[in-house]
Design a protein around this nucleic acid. Structure first.
Lengths: 223, 223
DNA sequence: ACCTGAACACCGTTCAAGT
DNA sequence: ACCTGAACACCGTTCAAGT
């Protein structure tokens, strides 16, 4: 950012928390292989930054905190421009769509949000929802009940969506992956209702289903 | 089950998938310490069953599959008695409450349901919800939209609830843990809306909030 | 202060060998 | 068929040592 480190022509890229965070995001974005990827690994981070473990631990408390920070960073960038003129419900719909697109572009974020311990990304989502619902006029238990309905739906959708996210392997495409999940369901349980759900799963549009869910909940809140 | 292995008076407890599953559940139920527990470990399983790794791998494909099966088993037992006379919405409320109580009694299940790969427990929940919504008269996209709203809300709530579940450490009680989470939120973000949510978090009743969320979604579906 | 890298205490999984 | 347990290829984290 600032114009120091003018020494070496090809500067040594001094380490920083910010640089580590960006490297972590880059690795996680690339890591999405057809196989169940290992995710972000300290050793992968060391290789990319060509440094040792001690250097990284000088800036980061531990790997879990780094993973949580990476997910939060992706979400932070996703709340770009919510028009202030729209009404609350319309704004919540826009925010939800932004979150979905962000999760879809970075398939690992959904899984990260429901990992143990404190997740700043989850708090970020809670905050934007809570703010809008407050503007809508809700307070107290009505606000937290409505907020938890919407936030937990988003967390659950996010975690599920990690399995079928767009940005996955180069080899297998989304349709093939959806069909494979559907087949798993069908072979695991022969019940016709499961077959029905599996049929729709393999043909269906995740984004549309997510937004339909948001609308159901907003209707339940307003109604 | 059958009356064989009559040889040794103190029978050697022949290994089986069922016995491994029960041991895994027992370990996970006990593992809930104040510290972020490691969860189920192959070596812990070996110690409890006093056997080697090869013996376990003879019955189980891998640890992830075992963890998924353990969560599914807990959920299977939770759908005890749903009265057939009640109407669909009432039955869905009862089913949701049963799921919550199950998650609350086994704090690890919530986190497990949103882990990678195929989760039979998630399919089980989808199935019971889908069946009820089908009885209600929904089909096609209306059914999957409503089902995903309810199912994903449950998955998200489950994952969040793992952090504050009743059956946790012996030392720290639920109230203290909730207060600590609330403090983490407050110190992470000074925004008054966050403080508001944190206040209610530390005093509030998870079960009531969960059921309120279910009611909001059911209202959105019916409305 | 910042960085290196060996060492440690763990993981899950495999597999030759026993019965 | 069922089980044993050493060996392997990984993890995240710590820390004495360098600059």
């Amino acid at each position: 950012m600032t114009s120091n480190t003018p020494r070496t022509g090809r500067r040594r890229h001094a380490l920083s928390k910010e640089r580590i965070l960006q490297a972590a995001i880059a690795i996680l974005d690339e890591e999405v292989a057809d196989t169940e990827s290992t995710g972000l690994t300290l050793r992968a981070l060391m290789a990319r930054l060509s440094t040792g473990s001690g250097a990284i631990y000088h800036y980061v408390a531990n790997m879990d905190e780094l993973r949580a920070a990476a997910a939060d960073e992706v979400l932070r960038l996703s709340f770009a421009d919510v028009p202030s003129d729209a009404d609350t419900m319309a704004r919540l719909r826009i925010v939800a769509a932004e979150i979905f697109d962000s999760l879809d572009a970075h398939s690992w974020v959904g899984a990260q949000l429901t990992r143990g311990a404190f997740q700043p990304g989850a708090l970020r989502i809670w905050k934007v929802i809570g703010t809008e619902l407050h503007h809508f006029g809700l307070t107290g238990a009505a606000l937290t009940d409505a907020g938890s309905a919407l936030a937990n739906f988003i967390f659950g959708s996010a975690a599920q969506h990690t399995l079928t996210s767009r940005q996955h392997a180069n080899g297998t495409d989304r349709a093939a992956r959806l069909e494979s999940v559907a087949n798993q369901w069908r072979s695991f349980d022969r019940d016709p209702i499961v077959a029905d759900i599996a049929d729709r799963l393999s043909e269906h549009d995740d984004r549309g289903q997510f937004l339909a869910g948001v609308d159901i909940i907003l209707r339940g809140i307003a109604g």
